[in-house]
Structures are given as structure tokens and as C-alpha cells.
């Protein structure tokens, strides 16, 4: 059963940035974008690389290792060498906190 987990405060993530967050052994990236907060798997789907140091541009994250890009809202792989989509997680801001559904 999926449940909402209290992840962080909205201020913990700069605008156009992300943080790495771990819950129950799962490594998740939480993003703060112009379009709101989003969450995806933290590891790139191409090779074994965390997206934590990647560049966030609008609603796109660029992997720091080979420059593969993903749509943050949908997880869709946008450009090579990334070709497999990222898993995404529902996010809501409630009571002054960011919640992720896992």
C-alpha cells in the first residue's frame, strides 16, 4: 500500500534544484521547479549515477555524467544516452511540508 511520507520543508530545496532523499532503502530525488515540487528515482537509468549534482532547467534534469536528460514531471527520457524513463512519485505540499507518496 502506498502512503504519504513527510520528506522535507519546501525551503530545504532551492528553486530549480533538487535534493537527494532516502526512505526505506529507496533513493529519491525531490525537485523544486517553477511548476511545483516533483519526485523521481535518484539514480540515472543509463548507468550507475546519482542525479543529485545534475542541472535542473525548467522541468528538465540533466545527468551530470553523460548529459542524458529527463522530464522531471513525467520521468520521460528526453535525450541520449538516457533511453529508459525514470520512475516518478506523487508529491504534495501540505501543512508547510513536502510529502512524497511511496
Amino acid at each position: 500500500m502506498r502512503q504519504w511520507i513527510d520528506a522535507c520543508a519546501p525551503d530545504d530545496i532551492d528553486t530549480e534544484d533538487l535534493i537527494a532523499w532516502e526512505y526505506a532503502g529507496r533513493r529519491i530525488a525531490i525537485y523544486n521547479t517553477d511548476q511545483g515540487f516533483f519526485a523521481t528515482d535518484l539514480m540515472c537509468t543509463h548507468e550507475d549515477q546519482s542525479l543529485e549534482d545534475g542541472l535542473v532547467m525548467d522541468c528538465v534534469i540533466e545527468c551530470p555524467l553523460h548529459g542524458g536528460r529527463f522530464d522531471i514531471c513525467t520521468g520521460k527520457a528526453l535525450s541520449a544516452p538516457a533511453s529508459t524513463d525514470l520512475a516518478t512519485y506523487p508529491v504534495k505540499v501540505h501543512g508547510g511540508r513536502v510529502w512524497v507518496q511511496i
Binding site: 543509463h46 553523460h66 541520449a80
Partner: peptide
């Protein structure tokens, strides 16, 4: 070529 080259970088 692309995937062997990205692997070469890693």
C-alpha cells in the same frame, strides 16, 4: 559508438 563511448568515459 555512443554507448561504448559513454562507457569509456565512466
Amino acid at each position: 559508438r555512443r554507448f561504448t563511448h559513454t562507457n569509456h568515459h565512466t
